[in-house]
Nucleic acid binder design. Structure first.
Lengths: 196, 196
DNA sequence: AAAAAGAGCTAACGACTGTTAGCCAATAAT
DNA sequence: ATTATTGGCTAACAGTCGTTAGCTCTTTTT
């Protein structure tokens, strides 16, 4: 092997993916070109292919990296002994933080998954459906245990996840608002709707 | 003038825009091609230009059509004498209905506005910012009047609008759920978080 | 009947797309 | 010291993109 990493403790592949995530968010996957990406990496377009296999491989990497992170976090919460309302709060806070400090990645997994080629597309959608189902199961349990008010669980999941993913349109307009304030405001609203 | 309308009471331009809205939603603005669109309209790509000026003119038409509809609806609500909580409920129901029966258009205005060329882009974002500000003003008034609980108004607006725009990811997975049920579930959750 | 305009077509332009081939220099492994 | 590998580069392919030019036929207006 020749030199395996550039400056900073990251592979060139990781650099490419990082720059790509920025570009994909700004322009959208379809409108972002490899020559565009190459320029941001500081290399010719063809050279990218020494590190990646294709444009859509980048998208796959990003989407499944995010998906896996959410799923493994959910597993920890599921296994915990918290009451259901607290579980939901934990998950909500986690989503908000992911959104805030891995913004580019989360955004792409949220908005650009459409451009995944099969079979990755189906795979991704299955994981997403499964994830949502498990969240609504928590709420369902919460209602059954009398810890939450009777509300349609899937609607609640939809509202919660959508509200959080909408933070992107906030970021730009109110960079000033600090993260903790945003998080606590948001949790307040979303949890209030679940509380009995 | 030659024949000014095709079958149905719609101009060919309207047909093009309607077909385009479907295509733009499915593939994204960048990935949808004029040849693709032409095929759906039943015509050669070049012939489209007898009715429209450019690809992005279609996007502009869709985005501002939706924006204008929302704004003029808001004006009616603002001018009404309802209590603030009722105003918000009216607006929420209106958004949900727009989302359900003008799905394609609303989706594009929500997700594809990024591809608007300047100066339309700035224009659109200004209108959006203004719209959100006016919603948060209603909530602020509601809090001041003691009709709503003290919550950060802009956070509430963000949660509400994002939650509704997330209905798209619902539609596909639960076509069965009828519109009224969805609407009432959603209103229940979103209004509950505002009520004192 | 003559003129104008609408609305379709084919062909093509120039720019840009993701990607491959093939070459060369530097580094790592033997 | 020699060989192998890595990771750059240039050039190019085959395709697609939005759009225009220029033609023809049909329909409307005068």
């Amino acid at each position: 092997m020749a030199k395996i990493q550039s400056r900073r403790n990251s592979t060139k592949k990781e650099v490419i993916i990082e720059k790509a995530s920025r570009l994909f968010r700004e322009k959208g996957f379809g409108a972002a070109s490899m020559r565009d990406l190459a320029e941001h990496v500081g290399v010719e377009a063809a050279s990218l292919y020494n590190h990646i296999q294709s444009k859509s491989e980048i998208l796959q990497t990003i989407c499944f990296k995010v998906a896996n992170e959410f799923i493994s976090n959910l597993e920890v919460v599921e296994a915990s002994l918290q009451p259901t309302l607290k579980k939901m709060e934990t998950i909500i806070r986690l989503h908000i933080r992911m959104m805030l400090d891995q913004y580019e990645y989360v955004y792409i997994a949220d908005h650009e998954w459409r451009h995944l080629p099969e079979p990755y597309l189906s795979n991704f959608l299955n994981q997403r459906r499964n994830y949502r189902k498990r969240l609504s199961d928590i709420i369902e349990t919460g209602i059954a245990k009398g810890e939450m008010k009777a509300i349609d669980p899937y609607t609640a999941v939809l509202v919660i996840l959508s509200a959080i993913s909408g933070i992107d349109s906030w970021q730009r307009s109110r960079k000033s608002t600090n993260a903790e304030t945003l998080e606590s405001n948001m949790v307040k609203y979303l949890i209030e709707g679940l509380k009995k």
